[in-house]
C-alpha cells in the first residue's frame, strides 16, 4: 500500500468513525431531550401523563393570577375550550399579563396542575407565540383585524 492509498484509507476511517460517533450522539440526545407542545384542550385529548416535561401554551385567564408567598404565583392557562391551572415559583417575564399569550415549560402533577419551571412571554403586546395562535385558531377564538395604519394586528377573542 503506498502513502497515498494509506492516507485515503485513514481519512475514510476517520470520517466513518466521526460520522457514526456523531450519529450516535445525536440519536441519543434527541430522544429524551425533545419537548412537545400541547394546548390545554390537547392535554385532555392526548391524555398527557404526569411527570413528563412538555410545553404548554395559551392565554393567561382573566382574574386567575394569584400571588403567593415570595415569588410564587398561580394562574390558569386557557385556549377557550379547556383551562389548566399552573403553579410557578420563579421569574415571570416582563410582559406577563392577564389575557396575554404565554408559553410555559414544565410538567403535570398527579392532580392535573401544571408545575412550570419556566414561563416565557414575548416583550411585544401585539406578539402571540405561533403555537398559541394555532391553538386559538383551532378553537375558533382567533380573529385578525386591521388598524387605521393599515397594519394587520391580531387579537384573541376572549
Amino acid at each position: 500500500m503506498n502513502v497515498k492509498k494509506r492516507r485515503r484509507l485513514a481519512f475514510a476511517v476517520a470520517l466513518l468513525v466521526a460520522a457514526s460517533g456523531g450519529t450516535w450522539l445525536v440519536l441519543n440526545a434527541l430522544g429524551p431531550n425533545v419537548l412537545y407542545f400541547y394546548s390545554p384542550s390537547e392535554i385532555q385529548k392526548e391524555h398527557v401523563r404526569p411527570g413528563v416535561d412538555f410545553r404548554i401554551g395559551g392565554l393567561v385567564a382573566r382574574g386567575s393570577v394569584i400571588h403567593g408567598k415570595g415569588a410564587a404565583v398561580t394562574f390558569k392557562v386557557t385556549d377557550g375550550k379547556a383551562t389548566v391551572p399552573v403553579n410557578f415559583d420563579g421569574v415571570l417575564p416582563d410582559l406577563f399579563r392577564q389575557g396575554q399569550g404565554i408559553v410555559a415549560i414544565g410538567k403535570l402533577n398527579d392532580s392535573g396542575t401544571f408545575i412550570a419551571s419556566q414561563v416565557l412571554a414575548k416583550h411585544d403586546a401585539r406578539y402571540m407565540p405561533p403555537e398559541v395562535e394555532a391553538a386559538l385558531k383551532k378553537t375558533g377564538r382567533w380573529r385578525a383585524y386591521a388598524d387605521p395604519n393599515g397594519m394587520i394586528k391580531a387579537k384573541a377573542g376572549l
Binding site: N33, L35, F37, E131, A134
Partner: peptide, 10 residues
C-alpha cells in the same frame, strides 16, 4: 404535525 422544541440539554 407534532410541535416540539430542542433545547439546551440536547
Amino acid at each position: 404535525g407534532a410541535k416540539i422544541s430542542v433545547g439546551p440539554p440536547y
